[in-house]
Write a protein that binds this DNA or RNA. Structure first.
Lengths: 190, 190
DNA sequence: TTGACAACTTACTGACTAGTAAGTAAAATC
DNA sequence: GATTTTACTTACTAGTCAGTAAGTTGTCAA
């Protein structure tokens, strides 16, 4: 037994990466195991089912996001800076070998993933939209953002376009994603 | 042999539906065969590989789209009517048991689908954006649309948000998709 | 009426899937 | 120093996957 430092976290990292790369139906325990140099059963020891593994990935992502937005390094930013911080999450995914957001990856195959995982994805998506909505309302009140209609609807539009934009970039190139971000800003900033 | 009228088209219809419902990695020949009441090998007779089947679905979609946009019933519409026609394609998908656009479904698992299929998806996406871009430029010239920046970028934003919006609706409900469409219009119409 | 062909079925293959049960060795705990 | 626990491995199962080869049957053209 070669003791690997924190296998559980290493597995989660790899699973997250594979989810964003190939989708839930596009990776297997064997992929993870071979990449880590262990046997399939070792993965099952830590995460008994694929459903449990998927849920753990999304749960960790949700926790991480809540930590970020409640940390003063994000909390105390101006609306403009918050917007850039949020965009950068997605820009970094694109830069990291064309990854796609967890939410988009799993919603695209929503009807072929386990039920509990569907619930986790929905919860994460809701939390992302809630934060975006609040941030947009703040910015409009502060006079740095300009848009008509409900902040919730504008939040839904912006997140959808980032989600779709990352996917588009896979087929049509990174520039297309940058174009989307640029246009969001053109439509939002005063 | 019970002769089924135009099996090839029936298979294609079912494959398209499954692609939009479960994703490329989420359906199998067995799903199609059992639904049609035939054996797996019957599907392979018409489409020897899954790659060929996927490509045929996308190719047909591309042809259909070109027929539509070159038909006078769409060609002669005003920019406003063209916009609504395009939105309705996506609204109808959402209404049809939460389907998602072909492009989005396959770009989300882009790195785990066959190479030739990737090419077909890219071609389709490009054609959709080209038409959108031209339509937006026409509308702005005619004074019925209002947006800053390049029509190509606005087209990329709008398509991405429809693509992401359909996916979001699976987790968060149809209303969320309607919100996105409403917001696109608010941001575009004068 | 015969022969060709289209549209299948039967029967199979080898690879891969998630998941399990039992065994093992090192490390932590008592 | 003995016992328990952690983190695996070995060896397996039952099911599914795409794909193939060979045989069958109804239809149609010559």
């Amino acid at each position: 037994m070669v003791k690997i430092e924190n296998s559980k976290r290493t597995i989660l990292n790899l699973a997250e990466s594979l989810l964003q790369d190939k989708g839930f139906n596009g990776f297997s325990y064997a992929h993870i195991a071979s990449e880590l140099g262990v046997k399939n059963a070792a993965i099952h020891y830590h995460y008994p089912t694929k459903e449990a593994l998927g849920c753990a990935v999304v749960k960790r992502y949700r926790d991480r996001f809540q930590l970020w937005i409640n940390n003063s390094r994000v909390k105390d930013l101006s609306p403009n800076e918050k917007l850039d911080w949020f965009f950068n999450i997605y820009t970094d995914m694109r830069a990291d070998k064309g990854k796609v957001c967890l939410v988009g990856s799993m919603e695209a195959e929503f009807n072929s993933i386990p039920e509990e995982l569907q619930g986790e994805v929905a919860a994460l998506h809701k939390e992302l939209l809630d934060w975006l909505q609040t941030m947009l309302a703040e910015g409009r009140d502060a006079g740095v953002f300009n848009f008509n209609g409900e902040p919730a609807n504008k939040a839904a539009l912006i997140h959808s376009s980032l989600q779709g934009g990352l996917q588009m970039a896979r087929a049509l190139g990174t520039k297309k994603f940058r174009d989307v971000v640029e246009q969001i800003k053109l439509d939002l900033l005063v």
